[in-house]
Nucleic acid binder design. Structure first.
Lengths: 92, 92
DNA sequence: CGTCCTATATATAAGTA
DNA sequence: TTACTTATATATAGGAC
């Protein structure tokens, strides 16, 4: 989405990688927020820059998202154990 | 980005909320992946639809992202304790 | 439900200051 | 760097299958 088309591969030049990171990061967070609001979804987003800096967003709270994620995963495991599980079928 | 401009607020109609969710979710995940590759960032994204379904992406693994997140938060707490911390200054 | 089809709205790659 | 500018690439709203 710019003057030129780009290929999705690691940007070698450190400066332009930083610039692109900054631009795309804000775009990504904006879209995450819009999805949460428009569609009443719970969203958790964590990004570490290549320099190690942390950026985060959670529509509720990150703790909530991580806890819920853990629970969903547990249930998924339970479902995987049971060959007749409807959950398993739907989730694959 | 469509035939009409929309306001960012919860979509009332359940059907179109689902449709929008599906479209925007795929767009969001695509951008998350692009950011990770282009900028060599570590990204973790978790989304629960309003019907409770889980969608996730992690450039490494979700466990890795959550663990790293926890560590970063701990360090941040440490920094917050120290009024002279450079970390605190940078992170606000 | 997904998938395809466009007209538009947005995001953003390169520049420029 | 740290913003702006703007031409283009992409995303997606609304509609049709």
């Amino acid at each position: 989405m710019g003057r030129g088309k780009i290929v999705i591969r690691r940007i070698d030049n450190s400066t332009s990688r930083q610039v692109t990171f900054s631009k795309r990061r804000s775009g990504l967070f904006k879209k995450a927020k819009e999805l949460a609001i428009l569609c009443d979804a719970e969203v958790g987003l964590v990004v570490f820059s290549s320099t190690g800096r942390l950026y985060e967003y959670a529509s509720s709270s990150m703790k909530n998202v991580i806890d819920r994620y853990g629970k969903a995963k547990e249930e998924h495991q339970q479902a995987m154990m049971n060959p007749n599980s409807e959950l398993m079928v739907r989730e694959l």
